[in-house]
Design a binder for these strands. Structure first.
Lengths: 87, 87
DNA sequence: TTGACATATAACCAAAAGGTGTTATATTAT
DNA sequence: ATAATATAACACCTTTTGGTTATATGTCAA
């Protein structure tokens, strides 16, 4: 799970990660709140968030003992541009 | 390679498969011609084509001893629609 | 009819993906 | 000070992915 290993196409390939992005579109959320929405462990959700942050789709800021994740949809334009070829 | 249909998001996650789609955007091609463009074996390319066809992004028609693949970009609209949420 | 060609199929492999549970560390509330 | 909370960091496991090679089958050309 290194710094530039995951690209945006890979990041959005997983349905759980797409749902995470949807959640964060509405509001910033800590890991615990995000993992409440999924039937998997908090550890697994944290890994998904790490992959999303490698793709620069989210950032996490420390607030007290929580880590609050924020959506950054900008990298999705790469997908958009790739798709535009087929319209 | 499961019998379960591959999702279009998963299909386009792989860079080789995205390149295959680009090639087929210009012209229909048999497997052998497609695999000329990649440093991997013909078998590997055939597997990628199988995944793309599970996602309904390509179809293959038998012509003599060749199998000619054709692009069908329609399923990409699912990605387009998913992306539109973030614009 | 024989040989070359195009693809299919099968067995196999290493690495990555997606998950688990446990333990450690930092922060907050009592 | 202690207990509870939130996350991080491991170690570990199973399945999937992306690739290989070898062999079989069907088609075309000489």
């Amino acid at each position: 799970m290194s710094a530039v290993k995951h690209d945006v196409f890979q990041a959005i390939a997983d349905p759980t990660r797409r749902e995470v992005l949807r959640l964060l579109a509405n509001e910033e959320l800590p890991i615990s709140k995000i993992s409440d929405h999924f039937p998997i462990s908090r550890t697994a959700v944290a890994k998904h968030l790490h992959i999303l942050s490698e793709a620069q789709l989210v950032t996490g800021k420390r607030v007290g003992r929580e880590k609050i994740y924020t959506l950054h949809p900008e990298p999705l334009t790469e997908v958009q541009q790739w798709l535009s070829y087929y319209e």
